[in-house]
């Protein structure tokens, strides 16, 4: 049955391919170079102007877990990680498989999941 709930604007970071390489289409501060993956009005760090910037594809796992309880619309279990994109922001990403990735694992952005989740795989 179709949901009668209005769908809120998708607030997740955008990931797109350029020449087959995936990257996050985010923003960087023109004044202090602070990187951010999501839409912001100004730089969250110094309030300077931001301009479009691209981050990825490579990053390092800051931490990771396997969520084993269901979240509406998502069958459990699934693996998520905080990933520090090299020279870029820390992003929440989904990871394939059923095991968490150890701290420091090198990963790479891949095609977003079917619902639009930022997704990484091990390099």
């Amino acid at each position: 049955m179709p949901s009668t709930e209005p769908a809120p604007v998708d607030p997740r970071p955008r990931v797109s391919p350029v020449d087959g390489v995936f990257g996050v289409d985010g923003y960087r501060c023109a004044a202090c170079a602070y990187p951010v993956a999501i839409a912001v009005a100004v730089c969250p760090s110094c309030q300077g102007p931001v301009e479009p910037a691209r981050f990825g594809p490579d990053g390092t796992v800051w931490s990771s877990t396997v969520l084993r309880i269901p979240v509406p619309g998502r069958p459990a279990p699934y693996v998520v990680a905080y990933v520090d994109l090299h020279g870029g922001p820390r992003v929440l990403a989904h990871v394939g498989g059923d095991r968490h990735l150890p701290v420091g694992t090198p990963v790479r952005l891949t095609a977003p999941g079917p619902g639009g989740d930022v997704t990484v795989s091990t390099r």
Binding site: S64, T65, L67, V71, P72, L92
Partner: peptide
């Protein structure tokens, strides 16, 4: 569990509260 908030960019990505604390614990 408290649902992940679909208007938040991490909630929309399925980050329920236990996972938020679990990643802190793992780290």
């Amino acid at each position: 569990a408290l649902p992940a908030e679909p208007r938040d960019f991490e909630g929309r990505s399925g980050l329920a509260t236990p996972a938020m604390y679990a990643m802190a614990a793992r780290r």
